[in-house]
Design a binder for these strands. Sequence first.
DNA 1: TCTCGCATGTAACGTGTTACATGATTCC
DNA 2: GGAATCATGTAACACGTTACATGCGAGA
Lengths: 184, 184
Amino acid sequence: MFDVKTLCLGILTMGDASGYEIKKIFEERFSHFFAASFGSIYPALNKLTQEGLVTCAAQAQSKRPDKKVYSITPAGKIAFMDTLNQPLAPDRHRSEFLALMMFSHLLTLRQLSDAIDGKIAEYRREIDAISDCENERPCSPGEEFVAGFGKAIYEAAIRYVEDHRHIVEGPALLSAAPEKDLTS
Amino acid sequence: MFDVKTLCLGILTMGDASGYEIKKIFEERFSHFFAASFGSIYPALNKLTQEGLVTCAAQAQSKRPDKKVYSITPAGKIAFMDTLNQPLAPDRHRSEFLALMMFSHLLTLRQLSDAIDGKIAEYRREIDAISDCENERPCSPGEEFVAGFGKAIYEAAIRYVEDHRHIVEGPALLSAAPEKDLTS
DNA sequence: TCTCGCATGTAACGTGTTACATGATTCC
DNA sequence: GGAATCATGTAACACGTTACATGCGAGA
């Protein structure tokens, strides 16, 4: 249901924007549940224009490529409202961290602890990024809800990992500590 | 770092398996953080065989295609241990539900509530699936950690959505209730 | 000076999905 | 009788990323 093209259209319901600005919106407000690169955004905007769902006004700029500001058309609004009625595809998650944990028995304690510490740090950075974003701009209820969701999930992840890392680190500790048995 | 091919190799470190069985393992134990279809698993196993990282023993079966049981080779084990030292790519999430919530102001209360109720039900099903899986088989520490993580996240998601759905449903309630103002 | 931000776009590539082809057995 | 499970495989397709091409202005 929600591909890059559809989300570009959706973003344009919130106001006119250029491809560059849309990219920033993806990064700042959508990044923890959707990603999009220039290589997909620009072609998407061209297709939307061809289909008459958006219009494009080129703003000439001195010594820069024209800034192409896109606006959604009435047909575009209808098309977007229409996709909002489609059934939701299930969420997709891809976590290399969890994949690695599935093979924790093949790792040294050091490898494990580094991976876990790194992941916790990453979660904290995500929370900070969301907080920054919230402070910058007034949020719509939808944005507020999504931002809060992101924070809640990352906080739960940190709590879980901190409270349960011993499950994987314990066995690694034992297999790495035969010397300790001799000294005790 | 972890593509389908690498994970097939990893799964084979846990024991011999056919492509069909590997698919089931993906579904039962990896599904909440990684997905893979036959169309990617079978070609991956062929490539691994060509590269000498796994071997394949065809078991003739009456009236069925031969069951091809794959085993990891010493070279395969080394290759897999090697990839475990690579830096982890950041997690990728794709949630159409959160995307929809970003446009909650364009939805009716009914659309919103249905989407939210459906999502909560989906989260509960995921939790149940994880619990079932835990009961079926004894788990390695890694599996136990990952299963617990999945549960913790889905539970946090349910809690958050239940406690904060009013953020998006409140405004929809107001915009849908002009008739009520007349009768009160 | 050098990096970052602004600004657009394309082409090659990678990765994985979907749909198709085939077919027996078992459970409801 | 029909659906699900077992069992493998391919080809077309979708989708998106990465790297490249271009180039100025501002600030460190």
